[in-house]
Every structure is written in structure tokens, then in C-alpha cells.
Simulated scan of single mutants.
Amino acid sequence: MAASKSVLPALALSLILSTSALAQTAPPPTVELGPAPAQDESAVVAELTVVAKPPGPAVWLVEKDGARLYILGSAPPLPHQLKWSSPRLEKALDKASLVLVPPEASVGVTQIASFVLRFGAGLRQPLGKSLEDQLPPDLKARFVESRTQARKGAGEYKNWKPAVAGFLLLSDFRQAAGLSEAKPVSTVERMAKARKLKVKAVGQYRMSAVTTIASKLSADDQLYCLRVALDEIAYDGAHSTTIGQDWAEGDLASVRARYRASAAQRCLIHAPGGAELLEKGLVLTTDAMTQALKRPGVTVAVVDLGFLLPANGVLDRLKAGGATITSPVE
């Protein structure tokens, strides 16, 4: 989810709750985000998910030639007030000499899409045109409702085309709802700073690549991206007080069910060159993890779950390269 700006897709709520306190709380409405764009699951994740979960978010230990790399899977957005702890991560940081974080400009799958849409060329309305006047009635009604919930006026988005307006509104809505697109990366950076550890981004995306993709969005793609962004706003609004709990508790099955259907990933898949950009991000991250395994000692990395959960993702590629991957229990 989430993002994850990474985003978490819809999760069906259990009909039978185990405690009376939960039973007295009305479940949030179901929000259908449709089928996930990627159906296959990482073989490594599938193998290790059946292991009893230690406390805290999912952490994988990657080992090769004596080097150790601890990978924390991130799933933004997370509630600003979410309290989470991970003894495994704390102990890994105590032993580490380097912490790897995603590129600042695009932290994971959702941030790549936001970068494309916000800074790309050809995404402003023509002179004299206004966004809401150009939208089909159903989309206009949904857009107005969502921006009202985000406490924003029409003027905030009137000069943008539908796709960029949708993702800007998604970000504004999350801010109003108390959800942080910077977490958990910002939290881990603070933990590293407290230990005086070196923090390094895994790489950088070229502006020319993202602006080229943005300029090729068709009118239909623009409306599609707006629709999926509004769907995600509806989901976040229905779950703003509970989103992030599955991640914090290491419930990968539930996280996967929601996270792999993010609006950003759906939008990028529709954009010419978007799938290739996602692959570049995957390669960039995998290469950084591979280099970390060539240095002695312990490295900690924060990697978007959008790069970890799919088949042939970062974990699968590291294993194929000869690394041993386990779920640390210490």
C-alpha cells in the first residue's frame, strides 16, 4: 500500500471479531479496487510467510559470502501516530555500519508515479480551460467530494490535467487524514541518525525519463489514472484509523492483498514506458542490495514492498544470485 507514497488496496474485513471491544466497532465500508495488476507472488515471500511471525514489520535477512543485509519492507502511507516496534530491526541497526534508503525523489512504486505526474511535461490544462469543467459528471462529483474531504478548493487543481490532479489530491487527502507518505523511511532514518550510522540512497531517477513518460499519457489514460486515485482516496478514507496495522504486525498476507493493487502502479502500467520505469527501479534497488552484500559487516536497507512482493522481485533476484534469505527471529 502505500506506496507506499505507496498505497494499500482494499482488504475484506473479518465477519467474526475476537474481542468485544472490536465487535462493538462498526467495520469500515468495503472499497473495491479491482483485481491486482500483478498476479504472481515472490517465491521467497511465499516460502517465509508460513513461518511464525516475530513482533514487528516484515524483515528479511540476506546473507552471502559472510556479508549480512537486513531488509525492512516499507508500505507507505502510514498513520503519523502509528506506534510500531521491531526488536529485529533494532538489533540489526545496533550491528550495522550502513543504512540504505530509497531515492528521495521517488520512494518506491507510488512515489515514482507521483514524480512522473507532478513534474512531467504536458500535464497542465490548456489556456482558458479548467479541470472540473472537463470531467465527466460522475468523475466530477467524486472529485469534488474528495477535495472537500481534503479541505481543498477547486482552485488548487484547476490548472492540472486529470492524472496529476488525482495524485495531488490523493497526497492532500492523506495529509488531512493524518497519513504520512514519508514513513517508515523517515523513522528509520531517525533511528540510524541516533546511532550515528551512514545513510545512503540507493540511486536516483533521471528527470528526462519521467517527463517523457508523462508527456505520452492519452486522454483516456488521464481519466483512468484519476479514477484509480479516487478509488484509493475512498479506501484510505474508510481505513484511515486502521491502515498500517497489518504492516506493523508483520501480517504479509493481508498487506499483499491490499498493497499490490496501488493506484500508482495501475496508472504507470497504462502509461507508455511506465512498466519499463518500474523495472528500472527494481533493477536499481537490486543492484544496490547486491553491492551491499559485497561489503563486510552488516547493512540495513528499507525497500518498498512493491519491489519485494511480486515474483522476480528484489528478494527473488538476490536468491537467484546466490544469496541465502531467511526471516530473522532474533
Rank of each mutant, 00 (worst) to 15 (best):
A26F: 10
L230Y: 03
K198T: 13
T211R: 15
P184A: 14
V303A: 10
T241C: 02
P136F: 09
G322H: 07
G306Y: 10
L318M: 13
Y224G: 01
L72G: 02
V164I: 14
K198A: 09
V255F: 08
V44F: 03
G273C: 10
S97A: 14
S4E: 09
W247N: 02
L226W: 00
W160K: 15
Y259I: 05
L93N: 10
F115V: 00
G122M: 08
S218E: 08
G273S: 09
V164E: 09
S186A: 14
G274I: 03
M289H: 06
I213E: 01
P37H: 09
K319Y: 05
F307D: 08
V283C: 05
Q111T: 02
Q222P: 04
E90C: 07
A275T: 13
K5C: 08
A238P: 01
T110E: 15
S106M: 14
Q81K: 15
G274D: 01
D251F: 05
A165V: 02
S215A: 15
S171W: 08
V109K: 01
G153F: 06
I213D: 01
T242H: 06
S130V: 13
L168N: 15
P29D: 12
K129L: 06
R124K: 14
L282Q: 13
V302A: 11
L22Q: 14
V107F: 01
L123G: 14
I233Y: 04
A214L: 03
A165Y: 01
V51Y: 09
L135W: 00
S218N: 11
L318G: 09
A229T: 06
A46G: 02
A229M: 02
L8Y: 05
L197C: 10
K280Q: 15
V44Q: 00
L15P: 14
A12K: 08
A275V: 12
Q111S: 11
Y157L: 04
L11M: 05
V59R: 02
R88I: 15
S180D: 15
L293R: 08
T290N: 12
V329W: 07
R195Y: 04
A154Y: 00
A105S: 12
G321M: 02
Q111H: 12
V283M: 09
V44W: 00
V50H: 12
P162T: 06
K158Q: 14
D304R: 05
P54H: 07
